[in-house]
Simulated scan of single mutants.
Amino acid sequence: MAQRAAVESMPECNRVNKVEGGESALHIQDLDVPDATLRVEGERFYVSRQCLASQSPYFRALFFGGGVESSKRTIEIKGVRVQQFTVLMEHCRTSRLVLDRDNVLGVLETADFLQLERARLLCCKFLERELHLSNCLGMMAYAWQLGCTQLYAAARQVVLTHFSAIVTEEDFLSLPKETIADLLASDDLSIHKDDMALEATLRWASFDPKREEHFLELVELVRPESLSLPFITELLTRMKSSDPRAKLICMLNEHFPASWSLGRSMRRTSARETLFVLGGPHDQEQQALYQFHTLSGRWQSCAPLQRKNLTQYSVAAVGNVHEEQNEDNSEAWDE
Rank of each mutant, 00 (worst) to 15 (best):
P304S: 09
L97R: 02
E273K: 06
L31Y: 06
V87M: 11
A143W: 02
A2W: 09
G42K: 12
H27M: 14
A53S: 07
W204S: 02
F113H: 06
Y152V: 01
F45K: 03
E225W: 06
S134N: 10
K308Y: 11
R96L: 07
S56V: 02
G106R: 00
V277M: 12
G263M: 10
I28Q: 03
E23P: 10
L108S: 06
V98L: 08
Q306Y: 07
T269D: 06
L108Q: 04
E8P: 05
E128C: 07
T274N: 04
L137N: 01
F215N: 08
H282E: 07
S56I: 01
V107P: 00
V16T: 15
L52I: 02
A181R: 13
E327T: 11
Q325G: 03
S48Y: 02
S54F: 03
V47W: 01
E41Q: 09
C136P: 03
F126Y: 12
R211A: 10
V82E: 14
F45M: 11
M139K: 04
D112A: 15
V16G: 09
D328I: 10
T86L: 14
A111Y: 01
V47D: 02
E323Q: 09
F292H: 06
C13A: 14
R118S: 12
R15I: 14
A153V: 12
Q50I: 05
C250V: 11
E76Q: 06
G279S: 11
A200Y: 10
K247S: 10
N17Y: 06
S259V: 05
R129N: 09
K240H: 07
L151N: 01
C124T: 00
E128H: 08
E169P: 04
R272N: 13
L146A: 14
R120Y: 08
R156Q: 07
R307D: 13
R49P: 01
S241R: 15
L122D: 04
L175K: 00
F256C: 08
A205V: 03
N17K: 08
G42Q: 11
R44C: 13
L62F: 01
Q291L: 09
F85Q: 00
E117V: 11
D194N: 10
T294P: 08
G67R: 12
V16L: 14
S261G: 07
E212N: 13
A205G: 05
L105C: 14
L275C: 11
Q145Y: 15
